[in-house]
Each structure stands twice: as structure tokens, then as C-alpha cells.
Computed example of a mutant assay.
Amino acid sequence: MQELRVERLKVSKIELWKDSIRKWWFRFSRSPLSVVGFAISATCVALAILAPIVAPYPEHAGWYINLDEALQPPSLKHPFGTDHYGRDVLSRVIFGMRYSFILVAVVLPLVIPTGVILGVLAGYFRGSLIDYVIMRLSDIFVSVPPLVMALAIASVMKPSMINSMIAVSITWWPWYARLAYSAVSSQKNEYYVIYSEITGMSKLRIMFKEILPNCLGPILTKATLDVGWVILVGAALSFVGLGAQPPTPDLGTMVAEGSHLLPASWWVTIFPAMTISIIILGFNLLGDGIKDIFTEERY
């Protein structure tokens, strides 16, 4: 009998998740642009993951020189043309997306938990010393544009992809702290929080089991939007020589190398730059769709 009850409970939970997914997809798909953003984002991520398989010339992502094919314009053999070393630009762009998403996969999992935890603490203990220290520290970082701060931090370290990740991570956490602070401050005086406090629930449980789940909408939306912006800042660091170093096919490095060949060999710069723009566009549209999922007015 007990096993039957457990089985029914599992089935009910599965059905509940199915209903939730259908509701989320309904709200998400009401905007055709969100669906387009999802398609663009999924395609870019898939290409990055499968880069060694889908790239026409995967060996061109490393040390490869063939001056006989240098600076060839787009053709059937090389749809994006070749660079000044004779390397296939399309292959390097695909591998460049992989390195860009590696940057995102390292930076966001570091900054989101750090910023959210600090923001939740400051928001729940609003008016206390904890609030003052955390928010004044975040104000210091926010007062300087992230790109300028990242450039300043990266310039004092050895140029590398790892150091660019560190530089971007240091500059990004305050935005999540301020977002979580605002969301928690607005939820703190709700009845369910007051009831939890009256019943003797621990402060940690109230903050992270009761309040935080109700603040995930704006946090997830910002995380999706930040994918494109982290890639853009990483590309900017590489553009000025502070990010990934050659022969790593970083998108920012490719734009910098091709800028000296404009306007004659335009394809060396234009295609990596267009790739950055498309990634940012796709994740921005996807972020708008995720925002719609958590917006009650879209019912």
C-alpha cells in the first residue's frame, strides 16, 4: 500500500512538471522573436560544442599556415574566405564560438551565486552593517563601467584566456548583488515571510528556501542577457591583446587581426564581428522570452 502511494506521488509530480513546462512554453512561444532567439542561441551553442565535427577544416584552429591560399575571398571551398595565413575563417569562427561559450560557462557560474548570495544577505538584513558593507562595495564596482574595469584588471596580469575570465568575473558580480538586493527587499515584508519568521523558521531557510525562489525570474532573465554581454567584453579584451593569445581562434582576436586588412580583405573581420552580433541578438531575444515566462501578465 505504501509503495502504491509513493508511485502515485511520483506520477503526480511528473504530471505537475509536464503542466508547468507546457505553461512555460505557451508563454514563451507567444512571442515569435523569442522563438527565433531560442533557435539562434541553440544553433550557436550546438556549433560550439560540435566544433571539431562541423568545422570544415578543424586543423585551421591551431598553428596552420598555407600562404598559397592566403586572403582568398568567400567561395564554395571557403564560404567565409581565408585569412592572411591561409586559414579557413569559417572553421576559426566556429571554434571561436566555442572559446566564447567557455568564457561564459566559467564566468557566470562564478558571479551569479556570489552576487545573488551577497544580495540576498544585504536585502534581508537591510539597514544593518552587512547591508552597508556589501552594497557600498558593490557601488564602488558599479561606478566604473564593466569594460573599463575589466581592461584595468586584465592589463596588470599576463594576457591569457584564464586571466580574462578572472577580470570579467571580478567586474560582474555586483550587478547580481544589486538585482537580488532589490528583489529580496521587495519580498521581505510579504505575509509568507512574516509567517515564516513567526513560526521560528531559521533565517537561512527563509532567505534561500522561501524568498529566493520568488526572485529567480529577473535573475534568470539577466543571466540569459549577460551571455551575450560577457562574450562582448571577452572579445573586447582579446581585441586589445589582453585576452586569448594567437593562435587561439578567439572572435575578438580575429576581428583585431582582420582590422588591418580592411577594406580589401573585409571578410576576415566582418564574419567574426557578425558572429558576435548574432550571438548577442539571439540571447537578448531569448532573455525576453524567459522574462515573459515569469511575468504573470502574459497569461
Results as ranks from 00 to 15, higher is better:
residue 1 M to Y: 15
residue 5 R to K: 08
residue 10 K to P: 00
residue 11 V to T: 02
residue 14 I to T: 12
residue 16 L to S: 08
residue 19 D to C: 10
residue 23 K to G: 07
residue 23 K to R: 14
residue 23 K to F: 02
residue 26 F to M: 08
residue 29 S to I: 00
residue 36 V to D: 10
residue 37 G to M: 04
residue 37 G to I: 11
residue 37 G to F: 14
residue 40 I to N: 07
residue 46 A to R: 01
residue 49 I to Q: 07
residue 61 A to E: 04
residue 65 I to W: 02
residue 66 N to C: 01
residue 75 S to L: 11
residue 79 P to E: 12
residue 81 G to F: 06
residue 82 T to N: 01
residue 85 Y to V: 02
residue 87 R to A: 06
residue 88 D to S: 00
residue 92 R to E: 00
residue 95 F to E: 00
residue 100 S to V: 14
residue 101 F to T: 02
residue 103 L to I: 06
residue 103 L to K: 02
residue 107 V to S: 07
residue 117 I to F: 13
residue 130 I to S: 08
residue 133 V to H: 05
residue 135 M to E: 05
residue 136 R to M: 10
residue 137 L to A: 15
residue 137 L to V: 09
residue 142 V to N: 09
residue 142 V to K: 02
residue 143 S to A: 15
residue 144 V to G: 01
residue 150 A to N: 01
residue 152 A to M: 03
residue 153 I to F: 05
residue 158 K to V: 03
residue 160 S to R: 12
residue 161 M to V: 04
residue 161 M to I: 05
residue 161 M to D: 04
residue 162 I to M: 09
residue 165 M to G: 03
residue 166 I to T: 14
residue 169 S to L: 15
residue 170 I to V: 13
residue 172 W to V: 05
residue 174 P to R: 01
residue 175 W to K: 01
residue 176 Y to L: 03
residue 178 R to W: 11
residue 182 S to A: 13
residue 186 S to M: 12
residue 190 E to K: 14
residue 190 E to D: 12
residue 194 I to E: 12
residue 206 I to K: 06
residue 214 N to V: 09
residue 219 I to M: 04
residue 223 A to T: 13
residue 223 A to C: 07
residue 223 A to I: 03
residue 234 G to L: 02
residue 240 V to E: 05
residue 244 A to V: 04
residue 247 P to A: 00
residue 251 L to W: 06
residue 252 G to P: 06
residue 264 A to L: 09
residue 273 A to P: 06
residue 274 M to T: 14
residue 278 I to N: 05
residue 279 I to R: 11
residue 281 L to G: 12
residue 292 D to Y: 14
residue 295 T to C: 02
residue 298 R to P: 01
residue 299 Y to P: 09
residue 299 Y to L: 08
